[in-house]
Computed example of a mutant assay.
Amino acid sequence: MLARLALLVLAVQISGCALPAREKAGALRAEVVARLGPPTASFPLPSGERLLYSELPAGFAAYNLDFDASGRLVRNEQVLTQARFENLPVGIWTTADVQRTFGAPLRVERVARFEGDIWTYRFRQNSDPRLAHVHLDRQGVVRLVMFTDELPHFDNARD
């Protein structure tokens, strides 16, 4: 009985160690997927494939793991950052570029003063929760990126 409990605790600890951030260059695609499970999304690249592991909607990170044609990891990047959103090519990037880089948004909204969709992503700047709002016009071209602080959610409902 004690041995089974020890094995269960070890299995939980090992599974908790499987994080996209820990994957190193040179790792084989099959081994990465075996450790991390299926990706949130995958995208073909000119010279390989991108596996995206996103923590949204509850988390604040998304990792792009880029593999070459032979299935070896060549790049591992956490992309939900202020710098990445600030450097998004406005007027050039499309919906497909945004999704291939950041994955699916936390939410998609519309407002009266903009004709198109606003894709919102959560991220952390230092330890502060923030939101990036990517404005995509009707043709799916990025027109604006804005930032706001994510306000805490308070549930004032009474039982």
Rank of each mutant, 00 (worst) to 15 (best):
Q78W: 02
V142I: 04
V33A: 07
D97V: 00
A34N: 11
Q78K: 05
R35N: 15
G26V: 03
V98F: 03
A96W: 01
N87Y: 06
M1P: 09
T148Q: 10
V12G: 06
A6W: 03
P57Q: 08
L28S: 14
R84M: 09
R29E: 11
L36K: 07
L80S: 05
R158A: 11
A11Y: 03
V98H: 00
L45Y: 08
Q13E: 15
S127D: 15
V32I: 08
V145A: 01
F114C: 05
Q139F: 02
F67P: 04
A62N: 09
T120N: 01
P20F: 07
R100L: 03
H135E: 05
E86S: 14
Q125Y: 15
R72K: 14
A11K: 01
H133S: 10
I14K: 08
R22Q: 14
S42T: 10
R84W: 02
M146G: 12
Y53G: 08
D137G: 04
L36D: 06
F123N: 05
A6T: 05
E86I: 00
V9A: 12
H135T: 04
L136S: 04
P152S: 09
N156M: 09
M146C: 09
F60P: 05
D97S: 03
T120L: 06
A112L: 11
L28Q: 12
D117V: 00
F60Y: 14
P89C: 03
A62F: 05
D68A: 07
V98I: 07
A157S: 14
I118E: 01
Y53H: 06
E49F: 02
K24R: 15
L10T: 10
I118M: 02
R158W: 13
L136F: 02
F123A: 06
V32E: 04
G103Y: 01
A30L: 10
V111E: 15
A21M: 10
V12F: 11
D159N: 15
F85V: 04
G91I: 04
Q125S: 15
V142D: 00
T120P: 01
F43E: 07
L8S: 10
F114H: 08
L8T: 09
E115D: 11
V142P: 01
